[in-house]
Amino acid sequence: MRVPFVKMHGLGNDFIVLDARADAVPAMTNRLAAALADRKTGIGCDQLILLEPSASADFRMRIFNADGGEVEACGNATRAVGLLHGGPARIETLGGLLRADPAEGGIAVDMGEPRFEWDQIPLAYAMDTHTLPVGWDLLDAPTCVNVGNPHVIFFVPDCAAVALDRLGPEIEHDPLFPQRVNVNVATVLDRTHLRLRVWERGVGETRACGTGACATAIGAMRRGLAERRVTISLTGGDLTIDWTAEGRILMTGPAAESFRGTFDPADYGAAG
């Protein structure tokens, strides 16, 4: 059995998309997801996306990071599958119900409302998530936001100078974060523009992270560093983030299809 897939990306954050609604897809396991995501021996991606039928939305989206771990949300992937769907879509995820709509500049995604309570991040114990009294080397006093998955955000003078390859995994696996955490380092260029780098749990540093952009924007707005509509510049390009008067996060940006192909699950140790 050969299984069709679509390779897509949002600002260079790339995905393998499998559609179990239309095709026979093997049971997804952490091991199979990691094997397909491997850039040397698999197809290669930051996340594997599995689309399934949903009783509460147009479809269900399951998200597996490159290490095989299943996670709650992915903003860039939501834009990608919105593009693939070809019209407005309500999407069920582990992080909640999302909506994707065609928009000028790409796809607009309603990411829902941010969460700030310590046990919603979650943290290992109670503390004020506005400014955490913790630090790692020169990274200290971060803020935390959950936008479907957990993020810690550090505001620094120059995010390009941060040794994210060393500090990212250390912070990701710190016991303070029982479900691990996505690590964001951001520089405020002005009140409507931030520069951002993201260490994504289970993936590493990515060219773009939609939920990271949302969390960083909300963190900056909470601290009075930014207006309610900002541009977030990542390595792969720009996203626009709005925090509406109703408290919801709107993320707008491009997505693209790279190519299509098929694979044999037996090549990756899965039953056909």
Rank of each mutant, 00 (worst) to 15 (best):
H173A: 15
H173Q: 15
D174M: 06
P175A: 14
P175Q: 13
L176C: 10
P178W: 13
P178D: 07
Q179L: 11
Q179N: 13
R180A: 12
V181F: 02
V181T: 13
N182M: 01
N182T: 01
N184M: 10
N184Q: 15
V185L: 14
V185H: 06
A186F: 02
T187W: 00
T187S: 11
V188R: 07
V188T: 05
V188D: 02
V188I: 09
D190F: 08
R191S: 15
R191K: 14
T192N: 14
T192G: 13
T192V: 07
T192K: 10
H193P: 07
H193M: 05
H193L: 11
L194N: 11
R195N: 02
L196H: 05
L196N: 05
R197P: 03
V198A: 09
V198S: 12
W199M: 05
E200C: 00
R201P: 14
G202E: 02
V203E: 05
V203A: 03
G204T: 07
G204V: 09
G204Q: 08
E205G: 08
T206F: 05
T206G: 10
R207S: 14
A208E: 04
A208K: 05
A208T: 03
C209H: 10
C209E: 10
G210Q: 07
T211F: 09
T211P: 03
T211R: 04
G212F: 12
G212M: 10
A213T: 05
A215V: 01
I218R: 12
I218K: 08
I218Q: 11
A220F: 04
A220L: 03
A220Q: 07
M221W: 04
M221C: 04
M221E: 08
R222Q: 15
R222M: 14
R222P: 02
R223L: 15
R223Q: 15
G224V: 03
G224S: 09
G224D: 10
L225N: 04
